[in-house]
Design a protein around this nucleic acid. Structure first.
Lengths: 158, 158
DNA sequence: ATAATTACCTAGTTGTTTACTTGGTTATAA
DNA sequence: TTATAACCAAGTAAACAACTAGGTAATTAT
């Protein structure tokens, strides 16, 4: 799993599409204006999204984009995987010798974790995000009153 | 949250440390050999990890690194945040005008999702990963027999 | 038909990040 | 005193991020 700003742009744009796609298609120019993303960069992102059938484009005046399928059938993982190239991390293809299995043990652990992150993001749909106005009640993590917000920007690596 | 290959290297190295740190400190040379990461790159990663007290270095012969605190007190989020600089995504600081609140709505949704991903990774410790030999039983996702493995490398963006 | 509008496409370009190399300096155990 | 390790600084090729420029193709409005 790879989670970069590129993926964020894509998720944000798709979120915009979900929110504003009720009355006709949404133009990239609108998304560019509203979300502060350059038009051509959006075009690149939407080329990837389109190739995965996550969006459908309508040409000509009055055209634009709408979701390729229902918002409850598009997961965050779908979006991120579409724009962020999947990079295989473990270079030991399956069950090689791999330094007496020691290296592969660590790799398997990482793979399990990576799968977990992936299926977590796969379990969140655009519809869920929009309907609930957030994810406060998502999954099994509802009794979490500590509310651990993002760490502040005081993370200066000396 | 940012999840790049750099973070993977760090998690993998910390996993190695957890697995092999029982009998004395582990040298970076060993991790480099076992995990296939260059020594100097490890040094950079461990400089960041050290500044966050996630590891402690012991100099001289017989030296190396061991965990800065107990493996059940180090989360995956801790590790990733230490090496991957935290980048603020939403440039609208808090409650600005922000295009009639429309843009901020999308941003708030993204923030909620981002928080969710973060606290998810924060809920997984090194000890958990190692003890269970994976995460099959983690959290609320135990009845998941479809076992959605990583998407194959057939994600060629046309 | 013609013009405007939009998606769609290709090729750059600048700055940052990755992952690594080289070449050191310090602390410590044998 | 010497080998071993952590620690530190600087540089580098390759990849990536985010953007610009300049198109072509389809569709609607005039």
């Amino acid at each position: 799993m790879r989670l970069s700003t590129k993926g964020r742009y894509a998720v944000t744009a798709m979120l915009d599409l979900t929110l504003n796609g009720n009355d006709g298609p949404v133009t990239l120019a609108e998304i560019s204006e509203t979300q502060g993303i350059s038009l051509s960069y959006l075009e690149q992102l939407f080329a990837a999204l389109r190739s995965k059938q996550l969006v459908k484009g309508v040409r000509g005046p009055g055209g634009g984009y709408y979701l390729g399928r229902s918002a409850d059938e598009i997961s965050i993982a779908d979006i991120i995987c579409a724009v962020d190239e999947w990079v295989e991390f473990t270079r030991c293809g399956g069950n090689r010798d791999c330094h007496d299995g020691k290296r592969c043990l660590t790799h398997n652990l990482w793979d399990d974790l990576s799968n977990e992150i992936f299926s977590f993001l796969q379990s969140i749909t655009l519809a869920e995000l929009v309907e609930r106005g957030g994810l406060k009640e998502h999954g099994c993590r509802k009794e979490q009153e500590k509310d651990p917000l993002m760490p502040r920007a005081d993370t200066e690596a000396a």
